[in-house]
């Protein structure tokens, strides 16, 4: 049927990853020109990522047939093994669980966003890949999970690996009427 065709087409689309990396680089540098300080750029990247995340999650659910997660460990697995694989072609490892099981780290061996990047000294507080944090936050918010996402290590800043720390804040009990809780 024609409708299946359209989906198949979307999946088989290929794009040069270098073009993607360059596009992202151009975007970040333009933001650096447009904004005075790095904090504002970080904020913009996070905001843009968030807007991508709230849409991307629908595509993810439509394609992967993954159901709702009822445990943060399950969420971590889906993010690392399915979502990162699907959209960035990498599978980060999951480590450093907090004792309460509400915090973990994603370790990215190689971050495709930073392939050709050298961070100049003048931008020492720029979180170059902060877009990813926004994407994760936006996507999880749409499946009723409020999370805090941030980079704690970055190869661009001389760390050995890139580490994204995710902290579960709460379930968003939306579509409950006001006063229900």
């Amino acid at each position: 049927m024609a409708r299946q065709g359209s989906r198949g087409g979307a999946e088989s689309k290929k794009m040069s990853s270098e073009l993607f990396t360059l596009t992202y680089g151009a975007l970040v540098t333009q933001l650096c020109k447009d904004y005075e300080n790095d904090e504002d750029v970080n904020k913009q990247l996070d905001k843009m990522g968030y807007n991508i995340g709230v849409r991307l999650v629908e595509d993810f659910l439509a394609r992967s047939n993954v159901g709702r997660c009822h445990d943060f460990r399950e969420t971590a697995d889906v993010i690392a093994k399915v979502a990162f694989k699907m959209y960035l072609g990498i599978t980060p490892s999951i480590t450093n669980w907090s004792p309460a099981g509400d915090e973990f780290s994603l370790i990215l061996e190689n971050n495709p966003l930073v392939d050709f990047v050298e961070l100049p000294d003048s931008h020492s507080s720029l979180i170059y890949s902060n877009l990813l944090c926004g994407v994760l936050r936006g996507a999880l918010e749409m499946v009723q999970m409020a999370v805090d996402v941030k980079f704690v290590q970055d190869t661009l800043k001389g760390d050995g690996v890139t580490e994204i720390r995710m902290k579960f804040i709460r379930r968003i009990e939306d579509n409950l009427p006001v006063g229900e809780e």
Partner: peptide, 14 residues
């Protein structure tokens, strides 16, 4: 994660 709901304590997550 436990959440009070209707005078009970329910498992919200985990």
């Amino acid at each position: 994660v436990l959440r009070p709901h209707d005078e009970r304590l329910l498992v919200a997550f985990g």
